[in-house]
Design a protein around this nucleic acid. Structure first.
Length: 383
DNA sequence: TAGGCCATCTGGTCCT
DNA sequence: AGGACCAGATGGCCTA
């Protein structure tokens, strides 16, 4: 057993030495490559086999650079071959060097029986690597295309202010959940709760964007950190909160994305929570009159998503109040309560008829608008 | 200038 | 063997 252990140990040390030697060589090669790569030009013939996958000048530049690095590495490896240093495929059963092991020994020349990384093999390796890179690029492009498709069907789309990948996924998840909840309950939600559901777990800029797309003031539905849910909110939206936040996936990254527990959402100041839709309802839109408000003015300007709310001020003029959220609000005033909030999916909940040409894409993406109009009309119209 | 986001390369793993 | 998928590393770009 002792003999076997020693033999194993020796074999392991031999293996480790080979690895150390290889790593040292690779580090030297890579260092050389990176210092030379800016001076190297890529092989046009080789590049031609894969630059057709490239979709932009940036890609081409990147790939040329990397190709140069590969060529440089190739040259270094060729040099190493001549020096006998490049033994990538060493046989582990090499017995003739047991006596000259040392900690800092340079890699020794091996016998001719060792396999070499020949130029042909290196060439094959390079080609394989390049093909794999091209496939990976295509795969990621496909993934990005799919993500772009997703961006177009979630309720907030802008070509100029694209949602990030992670925000797109989160918004899509929220959107799916909200729609599912509507299907499950068969009831129309109130708009604010719907927006809250959409914005759950989103960063502030994305929340701004979504809110702006829906022409809501984020301040009215984004809570502050330290306040509690007003008790008088609970009949109206607490059930929604319980629904909405119970499915929150644990372990979301820390801010800016946040964990979005319910306390994070429903911190609405007592004096303001009931005014979530105030800018839209309080004056020009009598809750019982769903036909009086209509506005055919211009669309609002593009939103800023730079972290500041798009609506930094409450609408002051009748024009703003009317225009800020042109909607019809059918409410059973008595059931909606003084704050105008009814249970989210209650049949008596106020129904919103949203002129979708105003609330969705402000960039005139007609297809997207059609899709979203249909979807949101279905939500806020008679269910 | 730091941090966020992104594209790309790369090596590993699994599957066909 | 080769392709798909994945995650880590890296560097560029942009913005606050």
């Amino acid at each position: 057993m002792d003999h076997m252990a020693r033999a194993g140990s020796k074999a392991w040390e031999r293996h480790a030495r080979v690895i150390r030697s290889f790593c040292k060589t690779q580090i030297i090669n890579m260092t050389k490559s990176y210092t030379e790569e800016t001076m190297m030009s890529s092989d046009p013939l080789e590049s031609a086999t894969w630059t057709d996958e490239c979709q932009g000048s940036q890609d081409e530049q990147d790939m040329e650079k990397k190709g140069g690095a590969l060529d440089s590495m190739q040259e270094d490896l060729d040099e190493d071959e001549e020096d006998g240093f490049n033994r990538l495929d060493e046989d582990d059963d090499d017995e003739d060097d047991e006596e000259d092991e040392g900690e800092d020994q340079k890699p020794k020349r091996r016998g001719p029986k060792k396999k070499k990384m020949t130029k042909a093999r290196m060439q094959r390796f390079k080609m394989r690597r390049q093909k794999a890179n091209a496939r990976e690029r295509n795969r990621m492009h496909g993934l990005n295309d799919a993500l772009e498709s997703l961006r177009k069907v979630v309720p907030c789309y802008s070509k100029t202010q694209k949602l990030s990948k992670i925000e797109t996924l989160r918004l899509a998840k929220n959107y799916i959940w909200a729609l599912s909840e509507i299907l499950r309950s068969g009831k129309s939600p109130d708009l604010m709760s719907f927006v809250q559901a959409l914005c759950k777990g989103l960063s502030q800029p994305t929340t701004n964007l979504v809110a702006g797309c829906l022409q809501l003031n984020p301040r009215t539905f984004l809570p502050e950190q330290t306040q509690e849910i007003p008790s008088h909110m609970q009949p109206a939206s607490a059930s929604f909160a319980a629904h909405t936040y119970s499915y929150q996936t644990p372990g979301l990254p820390s801010p800016p994305y946040g964990t979005m527990d319910s306390s994070h959402i429903f911190h609405v100041k007592p004096h303001s929570y009931g005014s979530a839709l105030e800018p839209f309802f309080e004056t020009a839109l009598p809750l019982t009159d769903c036909t009086s408000a209509s506005f055919d003015g211009p669309l609002s300007p593009p939103l800023s998503v730079n972290g500041n709310f798009s609506f930094k001020h409450e609408p002051t003029s009748e024009f703003e109040k009317n225009y800020a959220f042109t909607m019809h609000y059918q409410a059973a005033a008595g059931l909606a309560g003084p704050q105008g909030h009814a249970p989210l999916y209650a049949s008596s909940a106020p129904r919103c008829e949203l002129p979708m040409e105003n609330i969705m894409s402000y960039e005139g993406h007609t297809h997207h608008e059609r899709v979203m109009n249909a979807q949101l009309n279905a939500i806020f119209h008679d269910s």
